[in-house]
């Protein structure tokens, strides 16, 4: 028995090493399954909770065009959540359980969504920075070792680039506008820059799961690698907009062909992760309320479906 197990594990490792995707019914180590369920469901929760800060501005968008665009973006995020929940379900996770874990606080989601959206410029900053960081994280996941997750990410990535561009366009419009608008853009940038850098997760030395995830080819790059790429990509874009990166330590490092950036406030990061960010409670309350208030609809739809199925059966009989 044990030998069989060893054999299966070796076969699994070999497939992963050869970049052959693992599919739902394939044998996989328990820890691989657990890691994936945790990561994919967290990712799904982030998409769902991520609708809230932006949803806050749908009714107050400055024009009908912006409103339609924001609505479409938020709708996409709901779609991303659903692709990901169904990928997690292929691993045996139950949808109800995942939602329950989100609502009880047991499951995490990206900390970035625990920050408030104070002005319209925050909507620009989110699209440009937060979706920009999400893309940086998600593109390598299109080649992640678990098939359903990789396929869901391909779908997500196709949709993300519009999100980033609409955000950038909002920022550009504000930066080319009146001094007050430019100021709004800079303030939003100041608010979102550091939390966005935290989106890539703890420093490599403090990310104990990274090594195993890289070996399983769930992850393809470390947190710090992706964070560095993001900084290098965003600094010139900020310069183009005429915005100042809120980091006095930011300097070009010729030797590494990238920017050196200042110290991230990890105490803030961990405090938000632990539930003490500005909006953690509000976000979960909103989700729980939506779930509770929708319960009767779900029950009624099921009752209706069952009744109809019964009637069909009687007709046949």
């Amino acid at each position: 028995m044990e030998e069989v197990e060893v054999n299966l594990e070796a076969q699994f490792e070999e497939k992963v090493a050869k970049d052959i995707r693992i599919e739902p019914k394939d044998w996989m180590p328990d820890a691989y399954r657990k890691t994936l369920i945790r990561q994919i469901s967290q990712h799904a929760h982030s998409e769902i909770v991520g609708m809230l800060p932006e949803g806050n501005w749908i009714t107050r968008a400055p024009s009908l065009k912006r409103k339609a665009i924001l609505l479409a973006k938020v709708q996409d995020e709901a779609g991303h959540g659903l692709y990901l929940y169904s990928a997690a379900e292929t691993l045996g996770a139950s949808r109800d359980q995942m939602i329950a874990d989100l609502h009880s606080g047991k499951a995490k989601y990206s900390s970035i969504f625990n920050y408030p959206t104070l002005s319209w410029a925050d909507i620009g900053a989110i699209g440009w920075l937060v979706d920009g960081a999400a893309i940086m994280n998600q593109v390598p996941l299109c080649r992640t070792s678990y098939g359903p997750y990789a396929r869901a990410m391909v779908r997500v990535c196709k949709e993300e680039s519009f999100h980033q561009r609409q955000g950038f366009e909002i920022m550009m419009t504000l930066c080319n506008g009146a001094p007050e608008q430019k100021k709004m853009a800079q303030e939003a940038f100041n608010r979102w820059w550091w939390p966005t850098l935290m989106m890539f997760g703890p420093k490599d030395e403090e990310s104990p799961n990274t090594e195993q995830s890289m070996r399983w080819r769930i992850k393809r790059f470390t947190n710090d690698e992706l964070r560095q790429r993001f900084v290098d990509m965003m600094v010139p874009q900020a310069e183009f907009l005429g915005l100042t990166v809120p980091d006095k330590d930011l300097t070009w490092n010729e030797a590494k062909n990238g920017y050196d950036y200042g110290q991230i406030d990890w105490d803030e990061f961990w405090s938000v992760v632990k539930g003490n960010g500005p909006c953690n409670k509000q976000r979960i309350q909103t989700r729980v309320k939506a779930d509770q208030e929708g319960a009767w609809v779900r029950e009624a739809a099921l009752a209706h479906a069952e009744k109809r199925a019964q009637r069909e059966q009687q007709k046949v009989a």
């Binding site: 169904s86 292929t90 359903p148 099921l302 199925a309």
Partner: peptide, 11 residues
């Protein structure tokens, strides 16, 4: 393309 939850086929 993937999966989803629904009460019946129409939904």
């Amino acid at each position: 393309v993937g999966s989803l939850h629904a009460a019946d086929a129409e939904m």
